[in-house]
């Protein structure tokens, strides 16, 4: 297993997690008329999960800049 493929698998896992979190039935648990700090919980939830996904992508891709060597001169 190369570092590339490990990263790829983690990101696919993250995608699946995000897809589940953003869809029925989980999203229906937050589709309620109730709020937190004056803002509806559904909004908190959507933006929160969104930010979480971004942070995780950042985490998975950290320090990976020089690991892969794509063909440098594509002719």
């Amino acid at each position: 297993m190369t570092p590339e493929s490990i990263k790829g698998r983690r990101l696919v896992g993250l995608f699946l997690l995000g897809f589940v979190l953003f869809n029925y039935p989980i999203i229906s648990l937050f589709n309620i008329e109730s709020d937190l700090l004056g803002i509806p919980v559904l909004y908190h939830y959507c933006f929160g999960v969104w930010l979480l996904v971004i942070v995780f992508i950042r985490y998975v891709t950290r320090n990976q800049v020089r690991e892969s060597k794509p063909p440098s001169d594509l002719r």
């Binding site: 990263k7 790829g8 990101l11 993250l14 995608f15 897809f19 996904v53 992508i57 891709t61």
Partner: peptide, 9 residues
Amino acid sequence: TLVAALGWL
């Protein structure tokens, strides 16, 4: 956002 995660693949 979800595609971004899948983008690597």
